[in-house]
Each structure stands twice: as structure tokens, then as C-alpha cells.
Amino acid sequence: MNWYYVGWGVIGITAVLLIIFTVKFKRKGGYIVRHYPAVEGLRNATTTALERGLSNDVVLGDAFWSYSYPGLGLHSLSVLPHLLTQEAYASGGLSVSGADGSLVLFAQQIVHQQYADGFSAALAALTLGPALHGPTPSSFTAGVLPQIRLRSVGALALFGNYGAEGLLWAEAVASRGGHVFAGAGALTAQAALFSTVDDLLMGEEIFILPGVLSKTVEDQAGWLVEDVVRAGMMLLLVIGAMLKVLGVL
């Protein structure tokens, strides 16, 4: 069997379904919006931090692109616009950082785009630009830990591609009474953060985040496609396993 064709098939079906459902939902209807207590936790913590005059920290991960997790860097950037609210800007306590120069540069572009899309330019002066505390996971950790200690971090949100070192960032905030939310994509991050972070999204769950933060029909179409393709893949895996047992494959 040529696996290229299987790849083409999965990508092609997903693309077609995505277009069909996006068009359909734009006209009429929608898909079930799931309830995620972890995302509610993030919302509440962010608001509480704003009200108490504490800082809201967002970490975009260690890498824009990696071979093992190619979509995670891009995903962290796609979440960022949903966190850049006017309240967060105006409070001056929003801090965005990453451990990759390109990731930070793209984040900076997104922040500027938000001003261009209707926010007051005066808010720009109040907000810290995205920061690069270090260009490697270790140097970033060494740079961000003193910052967490110096500033009063009320809520920390972790996104993107990072490993077990996320535990050190989470512990630093949690030990000072701050709230930690983590979208853990990498397997090592999931294992490390499971024991510490209450509000944790793992694996494919992280990809629903932009849609849950601000619901759009495009997001709902994406969820439906994900569910359909996931069910199809599960079915194929079961059939494949059965054929393997029977000696056909």
C-alpha cells in the first residue's frame, strides 16, 4: 500500500469537510459548544488577576516549529489574539513571552495588528511587548523564573511547544498563590504538568481553545470536522487491527 495516498486521502477529506461545514455553518446552524472547566478557570483567573492588579503572563512555548510537534507553535500564535483583550491591554499587566526569536517576533506582529484592527494606539504604551527571556528552553527558564519572582503574577497561561521545564514555571507561579492554566501538547509537558496543574488541556484538547475563548462558526466547523475525522480514524484503526490479527494485512 502506498501511504502517500492515505495521507492525501486524510488531508483531502479533512479539507473538503472543513470547507463544506464552514460554508454550511455560515449560512445556518452550528455545532455543540463543549464546556471545559479548565477554560472557565483560565477566564476567572485572568479576570481576578486584573481586578487585583496582578500580572497576567502568557508563555508561547520554546519553538515556533519542531519536527515532533509541527503545529504547536502556530497554535500558540492562533490563541494569542483571543487573549489580547482591551482590558488586558489597559491594565498594563499583560506579559507575553516565548523562548524562540521568531515566535516572539510573530507575537509582536499580532500585538501590533490588534492595535491596527481597532484598539487605541494609546494602549500600546501601557503594554509590555512580547519578551524573549532566553533563546533556548533552559535559558528561557533561567530568565523567566526571576521575573516571576519579581513581578506579582496572578495568572500564568502556557501554550505551544514546551517540555517538562513548564513544571518549573508553573511551580514558581503556583507557590506564590498564582493560578496556572496549561495547554500541554508535548508528551513530556503533559506528564510533568498533570500532577501540578488543575486547569490542564492535554493533547488534541488544546486545539479547541481558540473556539472556546471566542466562539465563531469557523471554530465550530473545525470541531465537527475533527470529530468526524477522529471517528473515521478510530474505525480504521480497529479495522486495521482486526485485519492484522486475521493475517490479511
Binding site: V10, I11, T14, A15, L18, I19, T22, Y69, P70, G71, L72, L74, H75, L77, S78, L80, P81, F106, Q109, I110, Q113, G185, G203, E204, I206, F207, P210, E218, A221, G222, V225, E226, V229, R230, M233
Partner: peptide, 21 residues
Amino acid sequence: GMALGGLIVGLRVLFSINRPY
């Protein structure tokens, strides 16, 4: 699951359904 989620994010950016930029 991650690959599936990544595929959908990628396709949405590709078709400009999502524009993080």
C-alpha cells in the same frame, strides 16, 4: 490526536479561515 488537531489548524490557516497574522 495532536496530528489531527494540527492538521485542522494548518488547513484553517491555509484557507485563511484563521489568520493569526
